[in-house]
Design a protein around this nucleic acid. Sequence first.
DNA 1: AGTGCGGCCTGTCCGC
DNA 2: TGCGGACAGGCCGCAC
Length: 279
Amino acid sequence: MPELPEVETTLRGITPALLNQRIAAITVRNPALRIPVGESVRKACGRSIARLHRRAKYLLIDTPPADNPSREDDGGLMIHLGMSGSLRICAPDSPLRRHDHVELSLQNGVCLRFNDPRRFGIFTWWDAPSETHPLLRELGPEPLGKAFNGPYLHRRARGLRVAVKNFLMDSRVVVGVGNIYASEALHLAGIHPVRAAGRVSLARYETLVAATREVLQEAIRQGGTTLRDFTAPDSQPGYFAQELRVYERAGEPCLRCGAQVRKRVIGQRSTYFCVNCQR
DNA sequence: AGTGCGGCCTGTCCGC
DNA sequence: TGCGGACAGGCCGCAC
């Protein structure tokens, strides 16, 4: 399901309800996730939530120990929504849903539930600062940060023959760009998704960086993209699907030139593009 | 080292 | 109405 805008929407949705609240209990109803939910998540019990933030598509809930609240990163919960995960804020007595895996009960009575039908998500505890976690250590820059720029992409792409779309979706290169937004950004930038990453000029990488930022920021503004089942923590859908230029629009006219949008599988993922506008 | 692919899961939809 | 197969927004780990 979720790419960066959906994770960001989720973060913004849960933050007001969780910030500075004490965690009273954690209930694991089904530990079967990409990483099995272990007993260690209980370490968060009794601690207060000092900060909620995001790195790539990981949601990080910092719960510093009560005896030393200034050490914000000393332990916290790490959540990844995988393909089908979602978080929702609800009352403790609200009915459980199929595939509710973990539940966080706060002292103020609010409840956070993690639901994930396909179980590709993660809900885990990490003792050390989150950036030292093996899954976060090797990640590339944030797409909305300064380190993601034309010269950087151009340099990283040197000599690579992989399709530029796969390159853009490689989390060691840049994080947060998934299958929807890769197609969208490449269309906006006028770059053919199959073009070898090493054969894209610096100028066009500058354009691609701007396009990626624009697409992601607009999607965040619209509350993410709801194609099938994404909802924010308040159960509201995202509205960016209305703005999609090529994704899932095979056969329909390109909004720029009117040619038919094509669909093609690249790296086992459906890819949408306009052969006329993208070279 | 870069590249491509299988696999993890369930739910939904489509064609027969 | 049932059934098999394809497909779905992520990402790791492995073989070449």
